[in-house]
Simulated assay, not measured.
Amino acid sequence: MRELELKNVIKLGEREFLISTISMHVRHSFFEGDSKKIVYETMVFEIMNDEVQFHHPIFNERYNMADEAIAEHGAIIKHPENFFII
């Protein structure tokens, strides 16, 4: 299990976005061993009036491996236009 928490704010023109990648335990217990399974999730939220719009993610993706999540987090920072509409 690899704990992960990456947070970056990027500015595109007049708009700001929070890019968040975290590790999380699977909370469904449909299958044996799910409670010990870790998935990684990247989400992007717009920041409006200094408040993160957590209720309305504009990008959301889950990964099975930390390295995938880290790579995509970095790719979003470098080329956000490839992941969400600006």
Rank of each mutant, 00 (worst) to 15 (best):
N82V: 03
A75Y: 05
S20P: 05
R27S: 02
E16K: 11
K36I: 07
F59T: 07
M43V: 11
D67Y: 08
K11G: 01
M65R: 15
M1T: 08
H79P: 10
T21V: 02
N49C: 12
A69V: 01
K7T: 05
P57W: 04
N82L: 14
I58Q: 09
E5F: 00
E5A: 02
F84D: 10
H73R: 03
N60C: 11
E32Y: 10
P57N: 07
R27P: 00
N82H: 07
P57R: 05
R15A: 02
K11D: 00
Y63Q: 07
R27F: 03
M43C: 14
I38D: 12
I77S: 08
S29W: 06
A69I: 03
D50F: 15
V52E: 03
N82G: 11
E68M: 04
L12K: 03
V52S: 04
Y40V: 09
K37L: 10
K11I: 00
K7A: 10
I86H: 13
E14R: 09
G33K: 02
M1D: 01
F30L: 15
E81K: 14
E61R: 06
A75G: 04
S20I: 11
S35C: 04
R15Y: 04
I38Q: 08
R15S: 03
K37D: 06
H25L: 12
A69Y: 05
K11Q: 02
H56S: 12
K36P: 00
H55G: 01
R62E: 10
N60A: 08
K7W: 00
H56G: 12
M1H: 07
K7V: 03
H56A: 06
A75M: 14
F83E: 09
I22L: 05
R15C: 09
I58V: 06
R27T: 08
F30K: 15
F30G: 14
F83G: 13
S23L: 00
H28F: 14
F17Y: 11
Q53D: 10
T21K: 01
N64L: 12
H79E: 15
S23I: 00
N8T: 05
A75V: 06
M43K: 15
G13A: 04
I86C: 03
H25T: 06
E51T: 02
H73N: 10
Y40G: 13
D34M: 12
P80A: 12
V39R: 13
E5V: 10
Y63C: 06
V9T: 07
V9S: 06
F83W: 14
R2F: 11
T21C: 02
I85L: 14
I58A: 07
A71K: 15
V26G: 12
S23K: 05
K7S: 00
F83A: 14
K37N: 09
G13Y: 07
R27H: 01
F59H: 09
V52I: 13
F45K: 13
V26C: 02
